[in-house]
């Protein structure tokens, strides 16, 4: 039995094909989000990778901001629940999840049995999200995926005080014009994101094991800054960015089992 989980985010689309709720047949990330061809592309990509046709998918379930736009999905589940489910599959001991996506950041608290108990999301602005890093990378003329490595060259952390993305952008420009090193500025940017998001983690209560998911978790500098802020070691699974899609595929498997039991 094959299930599809598709996570159509604000900046990327992710898909996972799962066999019998256990074996990942194919997984793919396309850097195009909701409202673009991203969802269709990532869908076609995983089909091709697994060598199957759409008809062979027994249940498709969607999540992410664009979850209502994927017609093949029989059900939609919030990305909050999907990330919890996906991460728990990847790290069975996870109790706290910090997920930083393109336009939101969330902290999730899981019960010992893995059930989602509580969550907090950013509300008033995009500070502390992937979008914040995108804006900063553009100003610094570096690739966002290189920011983690560059920050390792930092010798002193430059504090970025503004919460507002636009004001923080001006602050970074002003640091650049003061000839501060880019690596130091990036370390400051990472610390700024970590401060913002750690507040959310502290609100739900940090319990080990702490796991990060979402695309931003691939940035080593952010993970380091987060560990410093919350005082706990953070695990980052290899498929951190696919956790939502994986969770959706797992929920799809649960739905199939429910249908089977009901029938």
């Amino acid at each position: 039995m094959i299930t599809l989980g598709i996570d159509i985010g604000s900046t990327t689309s992710k898909a996972v094909l799962l066999e019998d709720g256990e074996k990942i047949l194919a997984k793919k990330i396309v850097p195009l989000g909701t409202g673009t061809t991203g969802a269709q592309t990532v869908f076609e990509n995983v089909l091709e990778m697994a060598g199957i046709t759409p008809e062979q998918i027994d249940y498709a379930l969607s999540t992410g901001y664009g979850r209502y736009s994927f017609e093949l999905a029989k059900r939609q589940i919030s990305e909050v629940s999907c990330h919890a489910k996906g991460i728990r599959f990847l790290v069975p001991t996870a109790r706290t999840i910090v997920d930083i996506g393109g336009q939101d950041a969330k902290a999730l608290s899981l019960a010992p049995n893995g059930a989602l108990m509580n969550f907090v999301m950013n509300d008033k602005c995009a500070a502390g999200t992937g979008r914040f890093l995108d804006v900063m990378a553009r100003v610094l003329d570096v690739k966002v995926e290189d920011m983690g490595d560059i920050s390792e060259l930092s010798t002193k952390e430059i504090t970025i005080n503004n919460t507002c993305t636009v004001f923080a952008e001006s602050e970074v420009i002003s640091r650049l014009s003061s000839n501060e090193k880019i690596a130091d500025i990036i370390a400051g940017i990472h610390a700024s994101v970590a401060k913002r998001v750690s507040g959310q983690a502290l609100r739900v209560g940090v319990v080990d094991d702490v796991v990060m998911s979402g695309g931003v978790a691939r940035n080593k500098g952010i993970v380091r800054a987060m560990e410093k802020e919350i005082g706990h070691k953070i695990t980052v699974p290899e498929d951190c960015q696919l956790a939502g899609a994986l969770g959706a595929a797992l929920f799809a498997w649960d739905e199939l089992l429910k249908e089977k039991n009901a029938g």
């Binding site: 919030s78 990305e79 989602l116 509300d123």
Partner: peptide, 14 residues
Amino acid sequence: YDQARTRLQAFAEI
């Protein structure tokens, strides 16, 4: 209300 939609859906799931 996209974000509120996500949060309320997740809350309902909890």
